[in-house]
Design a protein around this nucleic acid. Structure first.
Lengths: 187, 187
DNA sequence: TGCAGTATGTACCAATTAGTATATACTGTA
DNA sequence: TACAGTATATACTAATTGGTACATACTGCA
């Protein structure tokens, strides 16, 4: 039996998909082992504190991805408009044009809300603030910048809910296009 | 021991709160009995098919509430603008100004998605279509009506996600106010 | 080649899971 | 007052839960 050797990074990505599909409480260890192909041995090797640590790692991983690929671009003081464009591109790609949900959003509404509220709170605050800053730098007034940043993040999350609910990913791409139009400073 | 006699309607409301707090898979029968005060005897008396039936009943109940208090007003051909105003009032009240989440949205993102996709799909489609119809009757073009209806429902759901995530209900009330401004035909 | 660290499989455990069976009590009605 | 329908409590079960223990294998490096 050829042992498939994995490393923690791969494990996190695989486990993330399980949580995405079944939620936190809905993902039993049996489900996780089956769907990832990782046995309990590997799982508890990578995540000694079990399921809770798996979820923490997954959420941290998503946060980290957004920090690097979205928030960093928004904070780039030199090219705010370009940063906002990059945000829309990254978001569209990350959520597979509406076929993928936001794990942070799902955990916020579902079980594990209180268990992970720290990461969740930080994720959405950071996003909104970084976007607001970028809008400010493109010429928005402070009030308009905050308002529009909130509108965009709200729109993205709501679109993911509706896309999943109506099984129509197009809701997501349509919403992204509409939100872009709210920011005339980008092409 | 004075037996607290309940009826199915009370049971549904009580169980709904549990699902709202812990999600579907996160609500064990133990949690449900404790939090509702209803024993297994009562629970399986009202819902012979167990947990699945409890969730179905709860989702149907919410759908029914929206049908009566929101969608019906939107369909009232005589006063479309008034119907839209009533929708905003009802939504603000129902979600406790952002302190309460949308069970349909939570179930859509979390576990039970496939188990309840029928009700979920119907709820959001009905809402969007009823609102689109009302907007049409206030003078929107067909395209603008559909677009704006989607924007409003997306905004409401997204605002609930963010309000919960950032533990700031104000996100919700702010969003409702902003969405109203997108519809000049209402006051 | 040996050895330490990393990765994995599997047998096991106590606790909890959803669900069942059954006895009982309360209620309205004839 | 008898009786049928409704509501409830409790003891039980088989399966599953998250987690542990431990033996084993593969890896790179000295």
């Amino acid at each position: 039996m050829p042992r498939e050797v994995a490393e923690r990074g791969d494990a996190i990505a695989a486990v993330a998909e399980v949580f995405r599909e079944h939620g936190y409480a809905g993902s039993s260890l049996a489900t996780i082992t089956q769907q990832t192909g990782l046995g309990k041995g590997s799982l508890y090797h990578f995540f000694p504190n079990g399921k809770q640590e798996m979820a923490e790692a997954v959420l941290e991983d998503v946060s980290h991805w957004f920090e690097e690929n979205v928030f960093a671009a928004l904070r780039d003081a030199g090219a705010p408009a370009r940063g906002i464009e990059r945000m829309f591109e990254a978001v569209e790609a990350y959520f597979h044009s509406g076929e993928r949900i936001c794990l942070l959003g799902a955990f916020a509404l579902g079980d594990g809300q209180e268990a992970f509220e720290g990461v969740i709170h930080r994720y959405f605050s950071t996003w909104t603030e970084a976007l607001s800053g970028a809008l400010l730098r493109t010429g928005f007034t402070p009030t308009k910048a905050e308002e529009t940043a909130e509108e965009v993040v709200v729109g993205i999350q709501g679109a993911l809910v509706l896309a999943r609910s109506r099984q129509d990913p197009q809701v997501f791409t349509r919403t992204l296009a509409r939100l872009k139009r709210r920011i005339p400073t980008i092409q």
